[in-house]
Amino acid sequence: MGANTSSKSPPFDENEDVTFDHFEILRAIGKGSFGKVCVVQKNDTKKMYAMKYMNKQKCVERNEVRNVFKELQIMQGLEHPFLVNLWYSFQDEEDMFMVVDLLLGGDLRYHLQQNVRFQEGTVKLFICELVLALDYLQSRHIIHRDIKPDNILLDEHGHVHITDFNIATMLTKEIQVTTIAGTKPYMAPEMFNSTKPTGYSFAVDWWSLGITAYELLRTRRPYHIRSNTSTNEIAHVFKTATVMYPAAWSTDMVSLIKKKGRLNCDPTFELEEMILESKPLHKKKKRLAKKEKDTSKNNSSQACHLQKHLEMLQRDFIVFNREKVRHHHDDIQTITLAKSGGAYKDN
Rank of each mutant, 00 (worst) to 15 (best):
L209E: 06
V40M: 04
I167Y: 01
F238V: 10
H159S: 14
H329G: 13
V99T: 03
F126G: 01
G121K: 12
T198G: 11
D164T: 10
D331V: 11
N264R: 13
G342E: 05
S340I: 08
L134T: 04
T198Q: 15
F320V: 03
L108C: 12
G105D: 07
V237C: 13
T334D: 11
H327I: 06
R226W: 05
N43S: 10
E71W: 00
P10F: 12
Y49W: 04
T198P: 04
K31E: 08
I143P: 05
M187K: 05
S194T: 15
Q138A: 14
T178V: 12
V243D: 06
F126D: 00
T163E: 06
A28Y: 03
N264G: 14
N63F: 03
H141N: 14
H141A: 15
Y136T: 04
G261N: 14
S139E: 11
K284P: 00
G32P: 03
I234P: 02
D17W: 10
K70H: 12
A343K: 14
L78P: 05
N193E: 07
R27C: 13
I332E: 09
I332V: 14
K260C: 13
S7A: 11
Q91L: 00
L26Y: 07
K283R: 13
I275P: 00
T242S: 12
K8Y: 14
S6L: 15
H224P: 10
D150E: 15
V319H: 15
S278H: 15
S89R: 04
Q119Y: 11
T163W: 04
K293S: 13
R226C: 06
A248N: 12
I25R: 08
D252V: 07
V325N: 10
I335D: 10
S255M: 12
L132E: 12
F90W: 03
K36P: 00
I175L: 08
